[in-house]
């Protein structure tokens, strides 16, 4: 028996919004430590890794490890049926071929359940090596989303250059060129507005704007985003989900032919 309950459906809607543009389907691996999903996008350029810890749920029970392959488009249709303040419970029997989403209104007067067929997905888990990154940038997630959106107008690729002075995002194409420089903030009213840089070595890497823009769909999950970079390895874009876990996106860099 698997059962996981969240007080607010909003968080699950936001999580789905953060992955459904990149992935058509995904396998949710459930164990007593929580729920994990790891999947590559169709073109195998990026990897999504979602971790939701069991202690972050209002209720969590997982008697036997189960892997639930879900069509994320179908899951999105079901979650659209939940109000933001509904409680959501995800339930499955051991060895079941369906999963049930139950939504309860705050006053418990409306209860709906939606059963969805599970899929058998060929899942291939990739090993992600432990890496000491040369540069780790933390910045407001909305600022990162804005920069990705703005620079994507100029080119399909974006250069990210990180030094101890700051981080620079650049794009150039037929229209011209664009540069956005962010310096480390000295003092801020709110922690969420801070830009901080931990640098061991300066790094310059090129990435596809299309994927960066897809990652920024996770912005509603967290006020801050963390970018971890080293030369010639995938970028990690991490959004923490308060008290519940995180979503990490890995993006392979572009290289000079």
């Amino acid at each position: 028996m698997f059962e996981a309950r969240l007080i607010s459906a909003t968080i699950l809607k936001k999580i789905l919004d953060a992955i459904k543009d990149l992935l058509n389907e995904g396998t949710f691996d459930c164990s007593d430590s929580g729920i994990q999903l790891q999947a590559m996008d169709n073109s195998h350029v990026s990897l999504v890794s979602l971790t939701l810890r069991s202690d972050g749920f209002d209720k969590f029970r997982c008697d036997r490890n189960i892997s639930m392959g879900m069509n994320l488009g179908s899951m999105a249709k079901i979650l659209k049926c939940a109000n933001n303040d509904d409680t959501v419970t995800i339930k499955a029997q051991d060895n079941a071929d369906t999963v049930t989403f139950m939504f309860e209104s705050p006053n418990h007067e409306k209860v709906s359940d939606y059963e969805m067929k599970l899929m058998n997905l060929d899942q291939e888990h990739l090993g992600i090596p432990e890496t000491d990154y040369s540069c780790v940038v933390r910045m407001p997630s909305m600022e990162f989303a804005r920069i990705c959106r703005d620079l994507a107008q100029f080119s399909e690729s974006m250069l990210i250059c990180c030094t101890k002075e700051g981080v620079k995002f650049s794009a150039s194409g037929d229209v011209g060129s664009a540069n956005v420089k962010l310096a480390q903030t000295s003092s801020v009213d709110k922690e969420e507005e801070a830009v901080s840089i931990e640098m061991q070595e300066p790094v310059t890497l090129t990435f596809a704007c299309r994927y960066l823009n897809a990652f920024t769909k996770a912005s509603p999950l967290s006020g801050q985003v963390q970018l971890s970079m080293s030369a010639d390895v995938p970028l990690v874009v991490e959004y923490r989900i308060q008290d519940l876990g995180h979503i990490r996106y890995y993006l392979a860099p572009k290289i000079e032919d």
Binding site: M40, S43, H44, V45, S46, L47, E124, H125, L126, G127, I128, P129, S157, T206, A208, V233, P234, Y250, L251, A252, P253, K254, I255, E256, D257
Partner: peptide, 14 residues
Amino acid sequence: KMSQRNITSFFKPK
């Protein structure tokens, strides 16, 4: 000209 690498050229199947 830049070319896009695949994530599988960095991370191998477990």
